[in-house]
Computed example of a mutant assay.
Amino acid sequence: MSDQIDRYIADQSPAKGEELRDLHRRILAISPDAELWFLDGRNDAGKVVSNPNIGYGSQTLSYAAGDSRAFYKIGLSANTSGISVYVVGPKDKTYLSETYGSRLGKAKITGYCIRFRSVNDVDLGVLEEVVADAMGPRSAGASS
C-alpha cells in the first residue's frame, strides 16, 4: 500500500507532490495507526471514474438499501486545480462549511470535500482539526 501511495505522490508535479507529502505526514501524525487505502480511481469494470486518492482510517458505511461496506474516513487527492480532502460520512451536508468554513481560508467546501489550490491558501491548523474530528467516532450513517 505505501508503495502505491509513494508512487502516486511522486507522479505529481514537484510542488504538488511536496504538498501532498506534507499533508500525508500530518494526517499520519494525527492518526498514526490509521488503516491506509489507495484507490486508483477505477470502478470494478476498470473505467476511470474519479481521481486516484489516498484514504485514511476505516468505517462501515450503511446505505438506504440495507447494504454496507468498509471505506476510509479521510481521503486525499490531487486534482487539476489543486488538492482535495474528502471527509466521508459527515454529520450532515452543511457540517464542514458551518463548522470550519469561516476559519479554513481560501477553500471550496461541499458536503464532503474541501478543495484548495495550495496548502498556502488554507489554515493548516484548522485542516488538522477537520482530520482529527473525522478520524474520531462517527454518527449519522457511518460507524467506526
Rank of each mutant, 00 (worst) to 15 (best):
R42C: 14
D44A: 13
A45T: 04
A64K: 14
G46K: 06
G57L: 03
G57T: 02
D67N: 06
L36N: 02
W37G: 11
K47T: 12
L36W: 01
A64F: 09
A34N: 00
S62D: 09
R21S: 15
D40Y: 02
I27E: 00
R42L: 07
I30T: 07
P52E: 14
A65R: 07
P32S: 02
L39N: 11
I27P: 02
Y63D: 11
G66R: 00
L61M: 03
S31I: 05
D33S: 08
I54T: 00
V49T: 11
H24G: 11
L28Q: 08
V48C: 06
L23K: 07
P32K: 13
R26K: 07
L23S: 10
L23M: 14
D44C: 07
N53G: 03
H24Y: 15
G66I: 05
R69V: 09
V48I: 15
H24T: 08
K47S: 14
L36H: 06
V49H: 06
D44R: 11
G57V: 12
L36S: 03
K47H: 11
V49R: 14
A34K: 01
I30M: 02
N51W: 08
T60I: 09
A34Q: 00
V49W: 05
R69I: 04
G41Y: 05
S62F: 09
A70F: 04
S31R: 14
G66Y: 03
W37I: 08
A45R: 01
F71A: 12
Y56A: 05
R25L: 13
S31M: 09
W37A: 13
N43G: 05
N43Y: 03
S68N: 04
L36A: 01
A70M: 06
K47R: 15
Q59W: 06
Y63L: 04
L39A: 11
K47A: 15
D33N: 13
H24Q: 12
G66K: 01
A65W: 00
S62P: 03
P32F: 08
W37V: 08
F71Q: 05
S31Q: 13
G57F: 05
P52V: 15
I54Y: 00
P32Y: 10
A64R: 13
P52Q: 13
R69Y: 09
S50N: 13
N43S: 08
G57R: 01
R21W: 09
S68Q: 08
G55F: 02
K47D: 11
I27Q: 01
L23N: 06
R26D: 05
D67A: 06
